[in-house]
Write a protein that binds this DNA or RNA. Structure first.
Length: 429
RNA sequence: GGAGAGGUGGCAGAGUGGUCGAAUGCGCGUCUUUGCUAAAGACGUGACCGGUCAAAAGCUGGUCCACGGGUUCGAAUCCCGUCCUCUCCGCCA
């Protein structure tokens, strides 16, 4: 979330930003209301502070009271003050709660260079080093390739868990492991701390990271009779792990890699391009997360993007990089780049499909999570910036890999960097 | 899962109803002594929300002793719930 005080003092700027992001008119009106709510909060806070001071003085005087009558009189006075305070606290809590609802619904500010507009306004800013493939045969999509080589069992997935789940089989398993090993290798070399993370997290952690468990339109699976949910991405746990932490300045920037399963209900996503691996309820992802000082976050964002490019260039997968338009940014993102890989089997004659996403969330997540750093000699603490990026989302990357590397004879070549981990250089029948 | 112990400032650790944001030690900062280092001494050393101020500093009010509730004029201290840690037992990959 944004800073409460800053929002109250910069209402016009905040509204302008929301307009740029295509937020509904109703939210803009709410933001205008926020400023007066916050003024109420401050006024009430002043009153309560004053009463607290009085009540404290009264309480302390009781021990030194000269007589029983005086003591009783003071007690009554103290009781009366506390009642006033309680009443005001009820009011201020309501005001704060109303303000918080608004504050939490306000998205992050937007990078001035991010393209303005909706989904279609995103701008291609870069291409990968691998050219689009040319086939002298009709390329298959990954589902057909999977059938040919017995790589996936969607029926078994449906049987045990329902539509959107699958079993990987045979060479697909080796490939999954090889891809993870490949990604981890590159991230380790880039100075990331390697972790595997819990696949479940408390609802409070989800909320702190900006996810909404248990709403009517939630994308999150939750566990009945507990406060746990299945994570949609390791971003939740990697950010959540540092909740309320204060870094020393020399610990930053900190780069962490987390491998987790990701679970998404994909509510309302039926009927879209969901064949095969593209949109499933569970997949494995190698995620990057970074904590930086504010002035370092843009450079870190560029680094995360570079790593994503390096990973896909290394796999020989053609892709384009999109600078995501303001209207299509998620709430916490100040700026976001997506990699879209070329998927020859997608649509009529191939199409781009999103495979990674990297966001600079500036201090939007860290404010709610209370993640700060301290500079020696300087007073106070400063909120860190958080960034996240996909290293490899296994399912989607595998679609691109299988479809781009298929050969006329039906076999699939394994990109060189994976061969050692995979133990073979080709998938054949 | 069962039984017990416990969660206090950057760390260690005292504090069982008021004068406690909290002793003491370590660490850290400034200064003094010293040719440098070491050592010693003096002083200082948290976060958050407000007020004052153009702003910062400063000054000033409040809140914070895991978290949330309760009792009380008053809670780090008493009661309840939650979370977490440790020890033992059970179970288990």
């Amino acid at each position: 979330m944004l800073d409460r005080r800053w929002v109250a003092d910069h209402t016009e700027e905040v509204i302008e930003n929301c307009r740029r992001r295509g937020m509904p008119e109703s939210l803009l009106e709410e933001i205008a209301r926020f400023s007066s709510l916050d003024a109420d909060r401050r006024r009430l806070k002043g009153e309560i502070d004053g009463l607290n001071q009085q009540a404290g003085l009264v309480s302390r005087s009781i021990g030194k009271a000269a007589s029983d009558e005086e003591r009783e009189a003071r007690k009554a006075e103290g009781r009366q003050l506390r009642e006033q305070i309680s009443a005001l606290e009820v009011t201020i809590n309501e005001v704060v709660a109303a303000g918080d609802v608004i504050l939490r619904s306000i998205p992050n500010l937007t990078h001035p260079d991010a393209p303005a507009g909706g989904e279609d306004a995103s701008v291609e800013v870069r291409r990968g080093s691998t050219p689009l493939p040319t086939f002298d045969f009709k390329p298959l999509d990954h589902v057909s390739l999977g059938e040919k080589h017995d790589l996936f069992d969607f029926e078994a997935g449906s049987k045990v868990a329902g539509h959107g789940f699958l079993f990987s089989k045979n060479d697909a398993v080796l490939l999954e492991l090889a891809m993870q090993r490949y990604a981890v290798e590159i991230l380790a070399r880039r100075g990331f701390t390697l972790t595997t993370t819990p696949d479940l997290a408390r609802d409070s952690i989800l909320e702190g990271t900006g996810f909404m468990p248990r709403g009517p339109e939630t994308q999150i699976y939750s566990i009945t009779d507990s406060d746990l949910s299945l994570v949609a991405t390791a971003e939740i746990t990697l950010g959540g792990a540092m909740q309320d932490h204060v870094f020393d300045a020399d610990e930053l920037p900190l780069k962490i890699c987390g491998i987790s399963h990701c679970f998404r209900t994909e509510a309302g996503a039926h009927g879209r391009a969901t064949r095969g691996l593209y949109r499933v309820h569970q997949f494995t992802k190698v995620e990057m997360f970074a904590f930086t000082k504010p002035e370092e976050s843009e450079a870190m964002h560029a680094e995360l993007l570079d790593i994503e490019c390096e990973l896909f260039d290394g796999l020989g997968i053609p892709y384009r990089v999109l600078d995501i338009a303001s209207g299509d940014l998620g709430g916490p993102a100040y700026r976001k780049y997506d990699l879209e890989a070329w998927m020859p089997g997608r649509g009529e004659a191939g199409d781009w499909g999103e495979v990674t996403s990297t966001s600079n969330c500036t201090d939007y997540q860290s404010r709610r999570l209370g993640i700060r750093f301290r500079t020696p000699g300087a007073k106070g603490t400063t909120l860190v910036h958080t960034l996240n990026g996909t290293a490899l989302a296994i399912g989607r990357a595998m679609i691109a890999l299988l479809e781009n590397h298929q050969q006329a004879d039906g076999s699939i070549t394994i990109p060189q960097p994976l061969v050692a981990w995979m133990g073979k250089d080709r998938i054949t029948t």
